[in-house]
Design a binder for these strands. Structure first.
Lengths: 156, 156
DNA sequence: CTTGACTCTGGAATCGATTCCAGGGTGCAT
DNA sequence: ATGCACCCTGGAATCGATTCCAGAGTCAAG
């Protein structure tokens, strides 16, 4: 084992934060983690505080921040800047789109529920050789479903 | 204008269904729309019932079906099969994951709300040269957020 | 000194639906 | 015969976060 007085290797950081070593390297590539010093053999030697940073990033990702945003924010912070207002602004934005998205999903849920109920009973009293009853009921009835379902979701 | 007694060109279908001509061609490529007959000049000439099919597909996509699933289902149906039970099964699955996803989002929403409130007041009574107060509050407090945020979303 | 676990590199692949592209025809109007 | 709007092809790009890859190097234990 390499002496860990010198620092944490990428795999150790990965394990301690619950992500893959690939992800750690990726975060470094896009400027979210600093370039750590290297051992004589070329291994990254992280100081313990990257753990906090990775946790922070994971949590922010869950909230809907993107890696690009985090990279920008953390860069500012690392240069001594104060990105707090930016962070708050982004958070407010995420919250709004979150609420919007929930509303859409619930609308879809409502529709879907009635659809499944309707399909179940229809299927129950149809003899098993009849056709094409289910999907077909989707073609009319153009309301009751949101249409702006962009991929505004987050996290792997 | 080409006589439309012969059929609808891709652009017309596109306009009537609110998608792009590219999408129409794409649907044909992956087997969701049948290969239509062609005009002497090589233009696709669709019969009017593709309109219904495209609408059906759009609606199913909104519900969380994938193009691959729809392709499979529609292929079965076009060969005279009866994919209804499959459709119902998938719909039930979509509904479940929808409910799960809503639950997660609401959890995130709750957390996010309190975070924004907390950040707002914290920022209000901090002099504008203090640093790093906001994001930092993410690193502890590991509960209260879902962690299985796969991209189980739908639709463009 | 060999084995095996770990790490390095950076470019490509993945997921899914859609869009974009270039180079080339079609068809109707002036 | 010239313009213009439309259509054809199929392969590649897009979005974002992560993963995968091959070929190579490091290091401690046996």
């Amino acid at each position: 084992m390499v002496g860990n007085g010198a620092g944490l290797r990428s795999g150790q950081v990965a394990e301690m934060t619950g992500v893959s070593p690939d992800t750690i390297r990726h975060y470094e590539r896009i400027g979210i983690l600093p370039h750590p010093p290297r051992s004589c053999g070329g291994y990254r030697l992280y100081s313990a505080d990257v753990i906090e940073r990775v946790h922070l990033v994971r949590r922010a990702l869950q909230l809907g921040f993107t890696l690009a945003e985090l990279s920008e924010i953390l860069r500012v912070r690392d240069k001594g800047g104060i990105p707090c207002r930016r962070v708050l602004h982004l958070a407010e934005e995420k919250l709004r789109s979150l609420e919007h998205q929930i509303a859409e999903l619930r609308q879809t849920q409502t529709y879907m529920k009635s659809l499944v109920r309707q399909w179940r009973s229809k299927l129950a009293l149809t003899d098993p050789s009849s056709k094409a009853l289910l999907l077909h009921s989707l073609i009319d009835d153009g309301s009751s479903l949101p249409n702006t379902k962009k991929k505004l979701r987050r996290r792997k």
